[in-house]
Nucleic acid binder design. Structure first.
Length: 463
RNA sequence: UCCUCGUUAGCUCAGUCGGUAGAGCGGGUGGCUGUUAACCACUAGAUCGACAGUUCAAGUCUGUCACGAGGAGCCA
């Protein structure tokens, strides 16, 4: 049993004209009158479906006429020119096999459903136009990211999902344990005795692969991680999920300049990659989800990104004469409204903001000579604000140690991270990109729950 | 976690001044020879999120809770 994929039929329908084909897929809509009917069939290989025309000469015309949306069928027929306005060709069926009937309470209708409702039927929503497009683009984007880094010789590092390090410092973690929650073994002080736990110590799901990947960077030079990360934060927003994927490249013998060039090149590459390989899906998003999407992406892919220091950015915002909901002051972090103003109004293209005050950035970022700022960079893009955050890392052992102590962190927790500064340390830099945020940026979708196949958010792990 | 809004048929929603429930789509039945979210006719389908309270009377007013959405904080 072998069926022609609709992807291939659409690619070469000219040469298929007037030949016999067999296709298999799911009924999207069905319209029937006394002696003939029309089925829109989608087989998942292509965004568009093909129209099947069937006559009452079919042996099972009655049964086929009663099929509901969602049914799985296999069709044999002839590719013919279509007299209809909405398609240039169609398949005149000679036989239709009902592979899997669909109960009449199938929840997906021909009309538009709310995204909110579709989230409650996450097992069925990939059959809808929007989610079909979203998840094909998500898949392509993952491919694009691997292609970009692999083509440049980066080594893909699988950093651990379960981590014994409680110092990743990026947020609340999910504990991993096999201890009995009702009566865990206790120490003499009455605390939970994790030495009796599976790993002999407290373990959690990772919140970031960065610290681990820095170690491999000191061996392979250019590396990246791309995998799931977990945050047990009770945040209920359109941009946060408890489980999400992150891309974290790290480059050795390189500083913040090389880091920005890498971020810019990667951004342009993945945009072009997806525009080339999913033109139907991208046109759909531009028409149905976000009217300015294609124009914005084309512009980003073809412009040279701007550069501005945090200090200059603050001046630009102050001089803008625009009133913001949040005050602008040196030392406080840029709000989304500030970021968007900079990239959309001032620069009118993506822009890197560099050299942030050290107080508002992470301990591992390289301290600048002014004693006030660190070599951090945020890449701001029109439409959403910050898309990428990165930095040159502090490679000087004494400086890093002092910063750890200043912030009251426990240096014992960082022994291996500090070690790589003693054993052949060198300047290095990297950045982090939330994969879902990249999917949202490329599709125009505005809720992270709608770009993950089965999203995990506070109080929700149904599927 | 905080603020705001919401929860009525399978779905999307309407429901006036407090007086006992409506539409479209979907489902079912029938009709129709070229449809494009087909069309036409008929039909079934509702503990109005839950629990209290006010009232002769609550989908409608009040309180609590649950769930959802948007925004904020935090961040990716």
């Amino acid at each position: 049993m072998s069926y022609l994929l609709l992807k291939d039929l659409f690619k070469r329908h000219g040469e298929c004209m007037n030949t016999a084909v067999s296709v298999a897929g799911w009924v999207r809509t069905l319209r029937v009158s006394k002696n003939l009917g029309f089925i829109e069939l989608n087989d998942g290989s292509f965004f568009s479906g093909v129209q099947i025309v069937f006559q009452d000469t079919l042996s099972n015309f009655e049964a086929v006429s009663k099929l509901g949306t969602g049914s799985a069928i296999a069709v044999t027929g002839t590719v013919v020119a279509s007299p209809g306005k909405e398609q240039s060709f169609e398949i005149a069926a000679t036989a239709i096999e009902i592979v899997g009937a669909c109960d009449s309470d199938y929840p997906l209708q021909k009309k538009r459903h709310s995204f909110e409702y579709l989230r409650t039927i996450a097992h069925l929503r990939p059959r809808s136009n929007t989610f079909s497009a979203v998840f094909r683009v998500r898949s392509l984007l993952a491919h694009a990211i691997h292609s970009f880094f692999q083509d440049r010789g980066f080594v893909y590092v699988h950093t651990p999902i379960i981590t014994g390090s409680d110092c990743e410092g990026a947020g609340e973690m999910f504990r991993v344990t096999t201890l009995d929650p009702k009566s865990p073994p206790l120490t003499e002080e009455g605390k939970v005795d994790f030495s009796k736990d599976f790993f002999g110590k407290e373990t959690n799901l990772t919140v970031s692969g960065q610290l681990a990947v820095e170690n491999f960077c000191m061996a392979f030079r250019d590396v990246y991680t791309f995998g799931p990360t977990f945050r047990a934060e009770n945040s209920n927003t359109t941009r946060h999920a408890s489980e999400f994927w992150m891309i974290e490249p790290e480059i050795a013998f390189a500083g913040i300049e090389e880091d920005m060039r890498l971020a810019e090149d990667m951004t342009k590459f993945i945009i072009r990659f997806v525009l080339e390989r999913a033109p139907e899906e991208m046109k759909f998003f531009n028409a149905m989800i976000d009217k300015g999407l294609l124009e914005r992406l084309e512009q980003v892919a073809s412009s040279d990104f701007g550069r501005v220091t945090y200090t200059d950015a603050i001046d630009l915002l102050k001089k803008s004469g625009k009133t913001f909901d949040y005050p602008i002051e040196w030392g406080s972090d840029l709000q989304t409204e500030h970021e968007r103003y900079l990239t959309e109004e001032v620069f009118k293209k993506p822009v890197f903001v560099i050299d942030y005050p050290k107080e508002i950035k992470a301990f591992y970022m390289r301290q600048n000579d002014d004693g006030k700022t660190v070599a951090a960079m945020d890449m701001l893009v029109p439409g959403i604000g910050e898309l990428i955050g990165g930095s040159q890392r502090e490679e000087r052992h004494d400086r890093l140690l002092r910063r750890i102590e200043e912030l009251g962190l426990k240096k014992e927790d960082y022994w291996w991270y500090l070690d790589i500064r003693r054993f052949g340390g060198c300047p290095h830099a990297g950045f982090g990109l939330g994969f879902e945020r990249a999917v949202m940026y490329l599709t125009g979708m505005t809720n992270i729950r709608d770009v993950q196949p089965f999203p995990r958010t506070p109080k929700n792990a149904e599927f």
